[in-house]
Design a protein around this nucleic acid. Sequence first.
DNA 1: TAGATTGTTAATCGATTAACAATC
DNA 2: TAGATTGTTAATCGATTAACAATC
Lengths: 205, 205
Amino acid sequence: MPGNIPDIVIGRLPLYLRALTRLAVEGQEVTSSHELGRRLGISSAQIRKDLSHFGGFGKQGTGYHIAYLVDQLRQVLKVDQEWEVAVIGAGDLGTALLHYKGFSDRGFRIACVFDNSPQKIGKNIGEYVIHPIDEMQKIIQERGIKIAMIAVPAEKAQEVANKLIEVGVRAILNYAPMTLNVPSEVKVQYIDPVVQMQRMTFYLT
Amino acid sequence: MPGNIPDIVIGRLPLYLRALTRLAVEGQEVTSSHELGRRLGISSAQIRKDLSHFGGFGKQGTGYHIAYLVDQLRQVLKVDQEWEVAVIGAGDLGTALLHYKGFSDRGFRIACVFDNSPQKIGKNIGEYVIHPIDEMQKIIQERGIKIAMIAVPAEKAQEVANKLIEVGVRAILNYAPMTLNVPSEVKVQYIDPVVQMQRMTFYLT
DNA sequence: TAGATTGTTAATCGATTAACAATC
DNA sequence: TAGATTGTTAATCGATTAACAATC
């Protein structure tokens, strides 16, 4: 199925899931493509079209049962399980990621953290011990970890990525401000706050 | 000019700028749409088309002079100046943002930080003093700040955004995991690492 | 039943790519 | 000159939207 579904559709599903979860927390049980669209700034037609790639989740006349749709979307996105994630880099950003409480109920759990600084190796951050980067490949391979977050300086990011891919990592969230070169079977997502701010300044007067 | 240029084109310019800056650091003086495209995983035709919206920056047969193109892109994106940015929320994430050194040479400077916790107000983070959130509107208005980063819990994000917009903020980088409701003259960009990871798990076997 | 909303088809809209004349 | 690469046009491709029959 993945083969014929546009990536741009997959990209919106997590937003639907997030908004639906929020509606559920607010105590609502049923919603419609119109209501969801209004909340997300997306047309109702697009939401129905997107969802229709995966099946008929709604009922004519009434809409979508939120708990059911959440469950289905979790299955589609494969976050009805908990993925172990490795964090590379224990600077300010790595530390913030380790402290972040928002991963666990959305399908992810940070499993380990690595850094190359002798001052940091062996130290604790919350419940985590910082491992030396030399042990990165061994540990990731042993645990079968498929997802990593790169929070190292830009100059080291490509090298780290290569090593991760070598031992089976297939999804990388890259916080380093540079484009990574990876084989086609590896997915990369980027977070660079400066890029996102530069996308807005153009519109400022 | 902004009116007729697709937003998706604007979205790629910061990536071009970032890659070009990197090439310059590596000591290169000239590049081509092919080389840039290879680095970014974008077709050369698309790069030429995107740039052509703003003028002819290259020379047939030779390509683009990097320093010149960097300069032009900075002007287009309006990051040939330094924008003051307000940070709302001084938790782990806010702290990481305040410590981050990568803003200043790309057009931004954090000007002030706000939090509502009595334990944090008045404390220092690096060179910054944490201001009470009650002073947020006054300070932002006085300084004429147009850009803010929201790093508060999801439940508070909409309220904070409303207050920011009230006093003139026109660009928001939202780290809270929720979609904001804003008037059309305000730009919002989102950073939610979980959303980005959920965009990759779909493709994992 | 009357009203509401889905899932889907066809039409529209917009973005990407291919190709090439111009020219450095 | 020969080779390379731009800027631009036209063709292709893909995504969004409008509309509506089906039906809860």
